[in-house]
């Protein structure tokens, strides 16, 4: 067990190192000259050179890389030129926004998709099975920014039910004192129900957008894996022994069907972090996705590198967590190790 974990951590460290090298190389290969971009529209050649020296871009690439790694080891991700802040501060300020949104979307999605998938499998070929197929296909085939704009068009513009798509809070409220960075939790800690309600309202549409997008893989995977389990021997035995349908499905079948679903959830979560970029743009959500895109457009290397690094670390941790979850859900995985 420990050996296996050790090996895993080793592989993890290696992949993070690879990510550092690759992002550094990629951002340097991209077209566009940071110095010229930031010297402004009326810059002379000398002014551009001044900016270049200030940013350390006149040095050879390997020296830039060494400096970059040294800074990283001190926890310094560099300065963002577009926001003018240290990258680490930007990322820590914006990560909770993305995380809150992604988690909310995922939870909504799970709450709908898993029961839908289980029902579709139990009543295979029925009306509910077809509904689940249609919903899932429609959700995944609509691009997220389109669903986002469509939802905001109907629920905000036409019906006026949703609040204005202006980010995490309406302008008359100020953010609750930061504890976790999740407005829903922080506002409860501060005991400010007004802000909690306001933050929740802002969250509904973007979270629904993400949920719609991620319904398909979760529903389909739950259905397929439930079908496989339902036709297996032990379920037949359980049924033959006269256990109630409820007990058979929820206790025996569902638990065994959960493993592939968890794997899919891990994948969906990473999907959603990517899909976030567009949803954040549509709803003016101040998350890390929109941050990275803006930085990329401006040839601003440091935030892009920081973003990719943080994402890589998150994926790695997520996979680790899923591996551990396997052990909890399925004793066979524990035993095998």
């Amino acid at each position: 067990m420990f050996l296996r974990m050790g090996k895993r951590v080793g592989i993890t460290l290696f992949s993070i190192a690879a990510v550092i090298v690759i992002t550094f190389a990629l951002t340097r290969i991209l077209p566009g000259d940071t110095a010229e971009y930031f010297a402004g529209p009326a810059a002379t050649k000398e002014a551009i050179q001044e900016v270049r020296v200030k940013l350390g871009l006149d040095k050879p690439k390997y020296q830039q890389f060494i400096r970059y790694v040294q800074d990283l080891s001190r926890g310094d991700f560099g300065q963002s030129l577009t926001t003018g802040q240290p990258v680490i501060r930007d990322l820590t300020a914006r990560l909770p926004a993305s995380a809150e949104l992604t988690l909310a979307g995922l939870i909504v999605s799970i709450l709908i998709a898993i029961p839908l998938g289980v029902l579709a499998a139990v009543k295979e070929g029925s009306f509910i099975d077809h509904i689940s197929r249609v919903v899932a296909t429609a959700g995944v085939s609509l691009p997220v920014f389109f669903t986002g704009l469509l939802l905001s068009y109907f629920f905000y513009f036409k019906l006026g039910w949703a609040p204005s798509p202006l980010g995490r809070l309406d302008i008359i409220y100020s953010a609750p004192p930061q504890v976790t960075g999740f407005y829903l939790i922080d506002s409860l800690i501060a005991g400010d129900l007004e802000v909690f309600w306001a933050a929740l309202k802002q969250l509904i549409l973007p979270a629904a957008t993400l949920a719609i997008f991620s319904l398909a893989p979760i529903t389909r995977m739950t259905r397929a894996s439930m079908l496989a389990v339902l036709s297996s021997d032990f379920v037949r035995t359980a049924r033959a022994s006269g256990l109630s349908t409820r007990k058979v499905i929820l206790t025996y079948a569902f638990r065994n069907a959960l493993l592939p679903v968890i794997t899919t959830l891990g994948m969906v979560f990473s999907f959603l972090l990517g899909a976030n970029v567009l949803v954040e743009k549509v709803f003016a959500w101040p998350g890390i996705g929109s941050y990275a895109v803006e930085a990329l457009i401006a040839s601003d290397f440091a935030p892009v590198q920081g973003f990719v690094l943080v994402m890589a670390v998150m994926y790695v941790l997520l996979n680790l967590m899923i591996d551990l979850l396997y052990g909890v859900i399925d004793p066979r995985v524990r035993m095998a190790a």
């Binding site: 704009l149 905001s152 068009y153 905000y156 513009f157 006026g160 204005s164 798509p165 202006l166 980010g167 302008i171 743009k281 549509v282 709803f283 003016a284 929109s290």
Partner: peptide
């Protein structure tokens, strides 16, 4: 004065038309 950044042009228009911005 509150200056909010709304990257989507469609939403900026919606905000204006609904009288929020």
């Amino acid at each position: 004065i509150v200056w909010r950044i709304v990257p989507s042009a469609g939403n900026r228009r919606a905000l204006l038309e609904r009288g929020d911005a």
